[in-house]
């Protein structure tokens, strides 16, 4: 088994902060164990080489320019397996806030009188442009989940992202509910898989992993308004990470 050549991993970033790659680099001892199984051939945060010959592509960031579209298609053509890494790549993430206004207005707000020289398109998660084989949600990605996905990938098994909300993991961790403390929390409608990482550490859920397939939008709106939030603020909570989720999202929430 060891004699076979190892699969080659490459990392690419689009519109993002490179924080999810940094998380990957932070795997520490596990990263060394992982290198027994794979070769990392392109990863600018940890190596200076940048090979163009790879099997598995990890894509970080959302697609926001015409050039991005061309580039991601080229990567897809080359890679046998493509993994979307982090919120920007999987759901559009915070970059999706741009989609709330018209492109013209967004350009003007950000670039002022230079707006006409800028090429930008609506923010899209990777799967809206090319097919994605594995999805690792989160802002940033949760390392134990990253490891689970990599194992599945190497065994050729699918990785099923949980379709239940963060609350179910949070309760198993026996956290005091944020609502109990009068804090608004998106855990009720946000996809689990992070082991309620934020709440375990005293924070609340911001919805960075995207919404479950069938979020109880009305019930959640009721809950948030019960805790004194206006519809406007409620929508802000829903849209912080999830604004580029497309039509389905629009139907549910707007």
């Amino acid at each position: 088994m060891k004699k076979q050549s190892k699969p080659r991993l490459a990392f690419f970033d689009f519109t993002d902060c490179e924080g999810c790659q940094l998380q990957f680099a932070n795997l520490g001892g596990t990263l060394l164990e992982l290198l027994e199984l794979v070769d990392i051939v392109n990863f600018r945060e940890i190596i200076s080489e940048a090979a163009e010959d790879y099997d598995i592509a990890f894509i970080e960031g959302s697609i926001t320019t015409d050039n991005d579209v061309l580039r991601i298609k080229k990567i897809r053509d080359k890679a046998k397996v493509l993994v979307a890494l982090g919120s920007c790549a999987t759901i559009g993430g915070v970059n999706g806030i741009k989609n709330r206004s018209s492109l013209e207005l967004a350009k003007k707000i950000v670039y002022g009188d230079k707006a006409s020289t800028i090429n930008t398109i609506k923010t899209m998660p990777v799967h809206e442009v090319v097919s994605v084989d594995y999805t690792i949600n989160g802002c940033p990605v949760y390392l134990p989940e990253v490891v689970s996905v990599v194992k599945c990938l190497l065994m050729g098994k699918p990785y099923v992202v949980p379709n239940y909300p963060v609350c179910s993991e949070c309760k198993m961790n026996e956290n005091v509910c944020r609502y109990e403390k009068d804090q608004e929390c998106m855990g009720t409608v946000t996809r689990a898989g992070c082991n309620s990482w934020c709440i375990n550490n005293g924070n609340r859920c911001y919805g960075c992993r995207g919404l479950v397939d069938n979020p109880a939008a009305d019930a959640q709106k009721d809950i948030l308004s019960k805790y004194g939030l206006k519809l406007e603020d409620v929508l802000k909570h829903f849209t912080l990470y999830n604004d580029s989720m497309g039509e389905k999202y629009d139907q549910e929430f707007k």
Binding site: Y164, P165, S168, K171, T188, A216
Partner: peptide, 13 residues
Amino acid sequence: GKKCVGCGNCTAV
């Protein structure tokens, strides 16, 4: 059904 947000807290506890 209208009120429930489907979080699963009730069954966990």
